[in-house]
């Protein structure tokens, strides 16, 4: 187990390095002249040269990548700027925004809590409803409630987030006016109190959770039906165990194992930003930061968010693997 963990951790580090390199070269290599993006309309030969010197754009790409990684890996961070205008960029240094000069890490850490609330709240919703509905459907296979659940799930999967989000927004905010228009100030639980906070997040949660809940319903149902056809379920019945024990102890344990994996990866993916939901409900999370940076050609910010999100996905992967090893003895002991 210990060796497995170490091997897995090493793999993770390698994958992260590879991703950082790919990301860096993709984004840094692509724009023809980043300096032009920074100085904008006032560009002339002199200012371009100055910007190039400040940001090190004259250096070979590999050197630029080394500098970038130094900011992420060295505990002291790195310095930005040419002689005379040097400034400290403490660890973890993702560089500075081209648009407003703010350290990218500051923007990320400001935006992260909103995304965290959004993703975890939605995760609770979809996990609860998805698994419950899927389980009921599987146990009543072919009955009305099963067909209903399957239908709802299919509907949910087919509801594009942009359509469903605006539908909720229109219904509950515009038409019924049960909930006020989203105000970013209400994203902070501890300053505005739970009522406003809930009002702010409830529709985004439902919006984000719908597709996942639908997917989890189908997944749980399919897994449970497969599991209940397994030989060991027949063995459990042949022992004279009650149906409750058969379903919950023998069936559910196996059926939910793959869901743990998928849940970890889904949540990990969302922690990097739920772009569309954040855009619809004006939540200033990582997703909104990402899209604003993309639209503003703000390369350091884009790079920062993408890398930050990739870290979550990769870490989620390893967490899930370790968790899986604890759940499934066949993995744990081999």
């Amino acid at each position: 187990m210990g060796r497995y963990l170490i091997r897995r951790l090493l793999q993770t580090v390698v994958i992260l390095l590879v991703i950082s390199a790919i990301t860096f070269f993709l984004f840094w290599a692509t724009p023809a002249n980043p300096a032009l993006l920074i100085c904008g309309k006032d560009c002339n030969t002199e200012t371009v040269a100055q910007v190039n010197a400040t940001y090190g754009f004259d250096d070979p790409l590999i050197v630029q990548y080394g500098t970038y990684m130094q900011g992420l890996l060295s505990p002291g961070g790195r310095t930005i700027g040419s002689e005379g205008s040097e400034r400290e960029c403490p660890w973890p240094c993702f560089g500075e925004s081209y648009q407003n000069g703010i350290p990218v890490w500051d923007s990320i850490s400001d935006a992260f809590p909103a995304t965290l609330w959004l993703a975890t709240g939605a995760a609770v919703l979809w996990l609860f409803f998805g698994v419950m509905l899927g389980l009921i459907a599987a146990l009543r296979k072919g009955k009305l409630i099963d067909k209903l659940s399957v239908g709802i799930a299919l509907f949910g999967v087919s509801f594009p987030t942009i359509v469903f989000g605006y539908l909720l927004l229109f219904l509950f905010i515009v038409k019924l006016q049960w909930i006020p228009f989203p105000d970013t100030a209400n994203a902070a639980l501890f300053t505005v109190g739970p009522v406003k906070w809930l009002q702010f997040y409830i529709l985004p949660w439902i919006t984000l959770a719908l597709v996942f809940a639908a997917l989890y319903t189908r997944l749980t149902r399919a897994n449970m039906i497969d599991t209940m056809n397994e030989d060991y379920i027949r063995t459990a019945r042949a022992k004279g165990l009650s149906e409750r024990t058969v379903v919950f102890k023998h069936g559910l344990r196996s059926a939910l194992t793959p869901i743990v994996t998928i849940f970890g990866l889904d949540l990990g993916g969302l922690l990097g930003g739920a772009v569309i939901t954040e855009q619809i409900f004006s939540i200033t999370g990582l997703g909104k930061l990402a899209i604003d940076s993309v639209l503003g050609n703000d390369l350091p910010a884009i790079m920062g968010v993408v890398l930050f999100a990739a870290i979550f996905v990769v870490v989620a992967n390893i967490v899930v693997d370790v968790l899986y090893a604890f759940i499934d003895p066949r993995v744990r002991l081999s």
Binding site: D231, Y232, R234, T235, A238, G240, L241, S254, D328, P329
Partner: peptide, 18 residues
């Protein structure tokens, strides 16, 4: 399990892996 018990073929799939 009490009065009638069954020995299944393929014990690997007939026993719960977990």
């Amino acid at each position: 399990g009490q009065q009638v018990a069954m020995i299944f073929q393929d014990p690997l799939s007939a026993m719960h892996p977990f």
